[in-house]
């Protein structure tokens, strides 16, 4: 007995490992950004697990896209605040 399906935390690590060749083909200067992007999925592991998708990549990519969207929205908000400040 015991669990058959790995936890999403383990699945994320497995998925990341499978993208090793992609990472290797990137210029050295891009690799840290790639690592950061994959890591950002782990900020939403519980939500990805709750989504119950047959492909673990789907859960990860949704987490990455969502994090990207949030970051972008926050940045846009900050920019518009700065613009407002400037126009005063």
């Amino acid at each position: 007995m015991g669990r058959t399906i790995p936890s999403f935390r383990i699945a994320e690590a497995q998925e990341s490992a499978e993208w090793r060749s992609f990472r290797k083909a990137l210029p050295r200067s891009d690799r840290a950004a790639f690592d950061d992007m994959l890591s950002s999925a782990r900020l939403y592991t519980s939500a990805s697990s709750a989504a119950v998708r047959t492909s673990r990549f789907e859960g990860m990519i949704m987490a990455i896209v969502f994090h990207h969207y949030k970051t972008l929205a926050q940045s846009m908000g900050a920019v518009s605040e700065m613009k407002k400040e400037e126009s005063r």
Binding site: R3, T4, I5, S7, F8, R42, L43, Y44, T45, S46, S49, A50, V52
Partner: peptide, 9 residues
């Protein structure tokens, strides 16, 4: 079914 307890990061 095969999932553990819930965690809020």
């Amino acid at each position: 079914a095969d999932r553990g307890g819930f965690i809020f990061e």
